[in-house]
Design a protein around this nucleic acid. Structure first.
Lengths: 213, 213
DNA sequence: AAGCATATCATTATCGATAATGCGGGTGAT
DNA sequence: ATCACCCGCATTATCGATAATGATATGCTT
């Protein structure tokens, strides 16, 4: 793996797991020493993290880990729902056996992660799964936005101390999505995705999302 | 202005105005010579452009200008509508006279740009205007996403050969938004924003967006 | 004691050089 | 003629050093 990727993954993981808490200040040279890369390489990694909204770089005052409120996470989920359900209809129409082939190993990776109680790994695989489906919609320009929305709702979810459900449930809940794809049932996929996302409850008092489907 | 900003604005403008068409390949060293900065500086600018989705960097095969389909632009508009109308209620509730103070010079910049027929400048100011309002919502994490959505719908709009309306109309249509803010009328602002965005018609056959308001 | 100018320092920003990498052309074998 | 392989080249990736900058602390003036 490239040094820039090492730095990127290193910091990303620590932020997602809340090891690096919001408001923490990161310096390019400090991380460079810690990771063993040059300043410029770390710089690139931080730029990528800013791209995803995990850090904020403000001039010469250093790079700080961003905060994330429950409201923001909730809004991210609303957007995610809109993007995915609207993409679903196109994706199902364009679905090919090759898509299923792409999904299978990701599904397997989710199983592995769940078996090892690796919540971070599960989240990464979950992201890959949903993204792979969305890719079939052909709406390339929206992919990065979807990734961001998933990232932040996942980030918030990881902060919750108790995991409401066993990880295995999270995995199996993806099977119905594959069934819809195999049947090329766009409307069904959209509905299933909507429900799938609605089961991700971030707060008790959560405002009900508008019904886009 | 910093060299990195020069490079960033230079390339961004050329892409937005379609001087650099989709699929055009950009090389770091090539741009560096053209602009008069070092490779690393151009690299940072390109990273920022990728962050906004205007270019795509794929390994060592160079950086290419992204495509943008009508469908994608339309979806961006849907997202923009969702984000802004939902943010509007919070923004209005938190609106202060200071916000209006912030808006006035932006509004003035829009007038200037319209008077000079500077469509690119107008678009930049329009972005600042909407962003300033959204900032008041306190949903920091969503700002970048909103910027992206606005950027891409603007990009697509700039491609249309004929400008349907005089630029001045575009400017004056923002006044009602300021009125709602002054009155701290969240519901009114949300409705006005929704209509405001709906008047941005990208395609003749445009699918009507779902009514979030 | 308050306010302002200034020195110091930590940090980012930029540069030029060098290393690594993958692509395409060309060559030779079968 | 076709395929595999190898070499050269264009480009990105990385590094180390240096310049620029803004924040903070310090001392001088009034």
């Amino acid at each position: 793996m490239r040094p820039a990727d090492v730095a990127y993954n290193h910091v990303k993981r620590r932020i997602m797991l809340n090891e690096l808490e919001p408001e923490t200040v990161l310096t390019e040279l400090g991380l460079a020493r810690e990771i063993g890369a040059s300043q410029g390489t770390v710089r690139e990694a931080l730029l990528r993290l800013q791209e995803e909204g995990l850090v904020s770089r403000s001039g010469r005052r250093g790079t700080v880990v961003t905060r994330l409120t429950a409201d923001e996470a909730q809004e991210m989920l609303v957007l995610r729902r809109t993007i995915e359900t609207r993409g679903a209809r196109r994706a199902a129409a364009a679905a090919t056996p090759a898509l299923i082939e792409t999904l299978l190993p990701i599904r397997a990776a989710m199983d592995d992660a769940a078996a090892q109680q690796d919540e971070y790994g599960l989240i990464e695989a979950d992201k890959d799964f949903h993204l792979a489906i969305f890719r079939a919609s052909g709406l390339d320009a929206l992919e990065q936005i979807l990734v961001r929305c998933m990232l932040h709702s996942h980030r918030f979810k990881l902060w919750a101390p108790g995991h409401r459900r066993p990880l295995v449930d999270t995995v199996t809940r993806h099977d119905v999505l594959m069934d819809c794809l195999r049947a090329r049932d766009g409307e069904g996929l959209a509905q299933a995705l909507g429900q799938h996302i609605d089961t991700i409850v971030l707060l008790g008092d959560a405002a009900p999302t508008e019904t886009t489907a």
